[in-house]
Design a protein around this nucleic acid. Sequence first.
RNA 1: GGGCCGGUAGCUCAAUGGCAGAGCACUGCCCUUUUAAGGCAGGGGUUCUGGGUUCGAGUCCCAGCCGGCUCACCA
Length: 529
Amino acid sequence: MDETDSLFQQRRKKLEDIAALGYDAYPRKFDFTHTIPQILADFGHRSAEELEAHRIAVRIAGRMMTVRPHGKAGFAHLAGGGAKLQVYIRLDAVGERDFALYKLLDLGDVIGVDGYLFRTRTGELTVHAEHVHFLAKALLPLPEKWHGLTDVEIRYRQRYVDLMVNPEVRVVFERRSKIVRAIRQFLDAEGYLEVETPMMQPLAGGAMARPFVTHHNTLDIDLFLRIAPELYLKRLTVGGLDRVYEINRNFRNEGISTQHNPEFTMLEFYQAYADYHDMMALTERLLQHVALEVLGSLEFDYVDERISFAEFHRYTMREALVKFWPPLAGTGPKLENLAEPRAVFHWVDEFNKAVGYETAKPNPLLGYDVVAPTEGGEKQIELPSGTSPGEALQILFERVAERHLIQPTFIYEFPLEVSPLAKQKPDDPNYVERFELFVGGMEIANAFSELNDPKEQRNRFLYQQLLRDKGDLTAHAIDGDYIRALSYGLPPTGGEGIGIDRLTMLLTGSRSIRDVILFPLLRPEKPAQ
RNA sequence: GGGCCGGUAGCUCAAUGGCAGAGCACUGCCCUUUUAAGGCAGGGGUUCUGGGUUCGAGUCCCAGCCGGCUCACCA
């Protein structure tokens, strides 16, 4: 903002002139009779004759978005409540003083108008002004009225301007609010209790991620912003809160992308006496409820895809690998080829042979098929030394299958090594009772039968500690009190996390997580000179 | 962090290495049913920053800052 800017100075002068006319430059309140959406809903269908025969007096407020002066009269559109309504201001109707005020108004000013409804010659519902009230001045000019504001940086930094001039932005955040409301509605009806657990934790547990660190002065201790509420919520289940959920922020000190913001909103819920199959069924019902409440339909468009919540697909992680194996990388594994855990390394090599190359084409000079490296193509999978078979399987799965999971798909049976808090399958201890839900190529949910054996949990933590010692900063820390809590007996429990931001992306057709977060994290602006 | 692309008036965008422009917004005048209102006249620029090449740089080169996309990491 540049207060020396001539437009700013000009408008400040006009504000002084408005005050000189006897208007309060910053009045305290304004009693309106209708919001603009109310007027459109209540009177939007009345004909010109009806409005003339039966005059409706209204008093409205809004931000002036357009203005069309005509000498001693003028039209303007006021925006409010996500809608717009035209007002007609003429000298002989509002008087000299209000008309002088109108002449001093700029686009962006907030005004009140009272008058009566009528239809113009072109048929537009309009308020015929009898009084104009000054409510607030826009000292800074609005973006261009036709193209609006497109500079994404300014849109995120100055969301207030974005919201003023890009109506679809408001729709996204109204819908986000509806989504969260529908989730609460559903879980409350299922007998869940909404709780709040610490955002500042002495140990950042419940997920694999690098945390943010902060410091409490009086206690003189470092604290971590939570990466997940998981371990606290399960402590509550130990305590007898059999169905709990929390919708709140998680913080992860990781990269920023179209799918990642350092702080993001997560729903986590835990249900005693349930396993991961129950959670799958619950997830289907929850998402169907949300879609119907918010969209009125189980189907919606996301980017270029038509997505349906009517049916949820199910594959084990290994089945997905087999099914979605890229043809370019050979015939790929069969299910029995993946039975032995270490076999996955062979298939990572097979995958890598094909990555980053164009489709093979017969080359007449050489007499055999060649593949050419693609420019800026994807990279090969590089496994750090010491990568476990389970980690390799998950990495390979993500590279091979994730992009294909457009329709809602549960991927279940995760490797033990990447799941320190999930219960093993009774018939195969290398895998756990865990699933993730993918929609639109994004991971939306993560759930499992909660590991409730304190001895096994300690061993899992010790394995994580080994990873930490080897330099894996995302490996889970040992949480002694959590093991103590489990030692009091955690009922068999199913638990799940759903990313609210990503769910909102799906249901609003947003390509970037920044479009569903009002103030996404950006590098701070340079201080003004 | 790597790769690619971008940054010009308040906003949206132009400008072969040769006088920095248009539309909207703004100012003045005209206009009492317009709607991207209209007509006439006008004001407004550290071309992201700093170097360099050149007679001459918005344009070419180098470095930096900021942003977007993408890859990696992650949810």
